[in-house]
């Protein structure tokens, strides 16, 4: 318990729209331990990004709003923190990198200025020391010719380089938690590998916990120690990487794993889960996955299952396992 850096309990983040309030995140519960890499997996639209923005306190409001639950960061509830307090935490204790390295850096300021900005917000370093620190960070993330780089503008860099800069920027104040929202989705496969290795190294070297949001199970298998699988704004299964890949409990997790191509098995068609992710809030009753689930039975459509702890410490939200 005590080594949870981040603990999210029953978080609800809703967006108001013309059709009423839509829960993008609907009672999500998970935790990140100090120094570990937690993978949060799910299809597009299941609330992964909204979860991370909620932790950062950056849900666009209006229309977004955190309606319930708590986000405990080292025991402090961030849903109740003032904007001033959140500014101290953002970039300093919790840092974030985004999916789109091409557009996540400000095009009209130099790389160096953008790096030093973050450092100088949170430390009392002089300009000169902040510069040195920024240079160190760029070297740490494996960039070369860093003094030239400091004077460059984002458009002069490739996507991979920009993502490295983003990571350098995020790691500059030695955060305790790094939230990486699909950090490699927009990159080439070879660059993806480099960026992931870099993040893993930083995780080991600096002991920063990472919350890695992705839809790529391959990435998760390689990087993470634990996984939380999200579906329609909720965690449906949580456990260690080994357990989940060896013995997925939830039909959705099984579906996800089956839909990853396997080089050893020659298939004519790749498996895909039938149907689409329901719109947030579309399913009011029962298990949200029931309409797409091959193993659903009458109870699934009527009652919503709880997240149930299984014998090996993993958790699953499915009536199949409640029966046992």
């Amino acid at each position: 318990m005590s080594n949870h850096v981040l603990e999210v309990n029953d978080l609800q983040t809703c967006f108001s729209s013309k059709e009423g309030t839509i829960p993008a995140v609907n009672g999500i519960t998970f935790h990140v331990d100090a120094g570990e890499i937690l993978g949060i997996v799910g299809e597009s639209g299941c609330g992964k990004s909204v979860t991370s923005l909620s932790v950062m306190g950056l849900v666009p409001s209006p229309p977004g709003n955190i309606n319930g639950g708590e986000i405990l960061f080292n025991g402090e509830d961030l849903t109740k923190a003032t904007e001033k307090r959140m500014r101290k935490i953002r970039g300093n204790d919790i840092a974030m990198i985004f999916q789109e390295p091409m557009t996540s850096l400000n095009p009209v300021y130099k790389i160096g200025d953008q790096l030093m900005e973050g450092i100088r917000i949170h430390t009392k370093l002089s300009k000169k020391k902040a510069y040195l620190q920024a240079v160190d960070m760029l070297e740490l993330v494996g960039l070369s010719r860093v003094t030239d780089l400091m004077k460059s503008y984002p458009h002069q860099l490739s996507g991979g380089m920009r993502q490295r800069v983003m990571i350098a920027m995020a790691m500059a104040c030695d955060p305790k938690l790094l939230i990486a929202d699909e950090p490699t989705t927009a990159l080439d496969v070879t660059i993806q590998k480099q960026i992931l290795n870099l993040m893993k190294n930083l995780n080991e070297k600096m002991d920063t916990a990472i919350m890695l949001i992705t839809h790529d199970l391959g990435v998760v298998a390689e990087m993470c120690s634990r996984i939380a699988v999200m579906y329609s704004g909720k965690v449906v299964e949580e456990g260690s990487v080994q357990d989940i890949f060896r013995d997925p409990k939830h039909p959705y997790t099984k579906g996800l794993i089956d839909s990853v191509p396997d080089m050893r098995v020659k298939k004519d068609r790749l498996y895909s889960i039938p149907g689409n992710v329901p719109k947030p809030g579309a399913i009011k009753q029962g298990c949200a996955f029931a309409p797409r689930c091959g193993q659903a039975f009458s109870r699934c459509a009527k009652e919503t299952p709880e997240l149930l702890e299984t014998d090996n410490g993993a958790k699953v939200r499915c009536w199949l396992h409640h029966e046992q």
Partner: peptide
């Protein structure tokens, strides 16, 4: 609404500077 404004906020920059420095120049 752009991504780099979200980045600036994620750094912990105060809104006044996010608006007058990061947004205005763009």
């Amino acid at each position: 609404r752009s991504d780099y404004i979200r980045t600036a906020r994620a750094k912990g920059q105060r809104m006044l500077l996010v608006v007058y420095k990061h947004s205005l120049k763009n």
